[in-house]
Design a protein around this nucleic acid. Structure first.
Lengths: 345, 345
DNA sequence: TTGAAAGCGATACCAA
DNA sequence: TTGGTATCGCTTTCAA
């Protein structure tokens, strides 16, 4: 394949190397005729600029670094839509995406910035106290967090509004006449790692339930597997004798096995028990039965993260300042919440 | 953060810039004392070499390009283990991973190579006739295919041996006394795109079934959703009156809904009907019920792909030549195949 | 509107 | 065992 340089293009087009550069960047007015000659030469030679040389001379790589939670026991499902959306958004701005895995910790961040491998970084799976956040804040490149640490150190954060999600779930159940709440929370490793959204969800759920005068029982599954789901189902049923119970499930991976475990015990959701899950819409639709859900909106979150990243990369005067951007979740009713005659929304 | 260069390191260590370079690369013997001084200076300045400059001068980027099937309707589940394994394998060799999505087609490949963004490429989701393969073969950088096109053009290919998987499934069912086979195949888009593994699996299944004297019915689900699964369940049951039927399901995403649909119709797998799925072990274990599966081995496949990639990157004399590397699948029995008294393996 | 030339920060050759 | 320096391919002043 070609190994032509901008010098070759210049020669073919009969112009100087700098003119070739300016034609490509548009940073200088060029007469129509020379531009055409240059473009023709580029076409003819199938010239592609050398990324390394460009990065060296121009001090920008046109690469965004993406730190993803691999290897961790973080919810692996639902990661793809994030990566996918970030990748396509990057491409739409003519940026490449460099993948770094979480298990490298802050070393990955230092490498990314120190070696000038990228112009900006998106970091996912933020913990409440995250050792990487202060490091990220000290880098020469802007960093956008998908998730909210306790102290963002002035970094931009984007995430679903998990507190609002919790309030939506509690309100929906309170409004439909339920008088008791069970939250099937997060497994021990998630809690121990102090994943930020888990805490935000649980705190807000407790607070709202208190405000609405509903007692809450928070259960903790061991993990997202069948046995854990079966145990949860038993606890819910043992607990739920007294009244009209609404179950809230923010931990995505336990949803399917839990639905199965409840079904196997003869429970009909929407009749014997109400359930709201926090999940993508696709998962809620395809589950058996389809359940009322509050959407995680991974695509929206990713898009907004990339938007603030690009805002940081070329700071439009008077516009973006870093801050926290919370995406509002959306509740979709699919019949797993029993409604009374008093309310019918 | 630091923005030190190797020149700074040289100054602090009291040596020349080239000595710093040689200390880092080890391409030249260095006296212990100077090496120590240089390393101390590097440490002190937290020096990191500029990737662009390195790529430019050294003509190698230490980046591998990874082309993943986003946006396509290719099975999104099971993609993560591939990416994850490739990423960690790359890191183990001190390479970065640049993500390119499939929907860019061969343009992405040309960019990767043309701009010298990477030293080698891993490409997934190969079709039988894949327009990208001839392009890949014409690049200046080595390309490893995860999947097998009809004409690999001399490129290295690594994949699960889907033909062997099909034969294993057929043999297992034949050996256990089944006298009829139903294959719940791939949905129309997969067939139309001529995804290579789908064809390999179906051809081999038909051939082996013929050799074993078993009639085969190949069904085609519309997609991987509940309604499609329900339709499949009906067809299987309508068909299966006459004898002992064994069902083979190579399309991963339909497995869960199909299991549910069968269960809802009162079918007990391993008693009324036998089923073997092609899926990761995790999925087979966690399903309801857990099913006998043939593993997709994404981690093995990825590891071997990276192994041949690194073999291409520094060609050990007398070792690697490009070729096709098929990973043997593994069958794990989980009780969804009914066994006769005549065989008990 | 265009060109010449000085870097950008490494690598690796040629000498010593 | 080490240092000087040309070079990689592009961007961006500075001059014209």
């Amino acid at each position: 394949m070609s190994a032509f340089t901008s010098k070759d293009v210049a020669r073919v087009a009969g112009v100087s190397q700098s003119t070739v550069s300016y034609v490509m960047s548009g940073k200088r007015p060029i007469s129509a005729s020379t531009r055409d000659r240059v473009l023709a030469a580029i076409e003819k030679l199938t010239y592609e600029p050398n990324a390394g040389a460009r990065a060296l001379a121009g001090r920008r790589t046109r690469v965004v670094g993406l730190v993803v939670p691999f290897g961790d026991d973080a919810d692996p499902v639902g990661l793809l839509p994030f990566i996918e959306t970030i990748a396509s958004s990057a491409r739409a701005h003519d940026y490449e995406v460099l993948l770094v895995t979480n298990d490298e910790g802050s070393a990955g961040l230092r490498r990314l910035a120190g070696r000038s491998l990228c112009d900006a970084i998106v970091m996912m799976d933020i913990k409440v106290h995250d050792e990487r956040v202060p490091v990220a804040a000290s880098l020469r490149v802007p960093v956008v967090l998908v998730g909210i640490p306790e102290d963002p150190r002035g970094l931009s954060c984007v995430d679903l509004d998990f507190a609002a999600a919790a309030r939506m779930a509690v309100d929906e159940l309170a409004d439909t006449g339920h008088d008791e709440l069970v939250v099937v929370g997060y497994p021990p490793p998630v809690i121990e790692r102090r994943v930020n959204y888990a805490e935000r969800f649980l705190h807000a759920a407790r607070a709202r339930a208190g405000a609405r005068g509903l007692p809450v029982l928070v259960l903790q599954p061991q993990d997202g597997r069948r046995s854990a789901a079966a145990a949860m189902a038993e606890k819910i049923l043992a607990h739920g004798g007294s009244g009209r119970v609404g179950v809230v499930v923010p931990f995505t991976t336990i949803l399917r096995p839990l639905l199965h475990a409840l079904g196997a015990r003869g429970v009909v959701l929407g009749r014997d028990l109400s359930l709201i899950g926090l999940s993508t819409d696709a998962e809620a639709e395809d589950a058996e039965p389809p359940f009322t859900n509050i959407s995680l909106e991974p695509r929206d979150v990713s898009r907004r993260a990339m938007a603030s990243l690009f805002a940081l990369l070329d700071p439009e005067p008077g516009v973006a300042r870093p801050g926290t951007d919370l995406v509002l979740p959306r509740l979709t009713r699919r019949g797993t919440v029993r409604t009374t005659s008093t309310r019918n929304r």
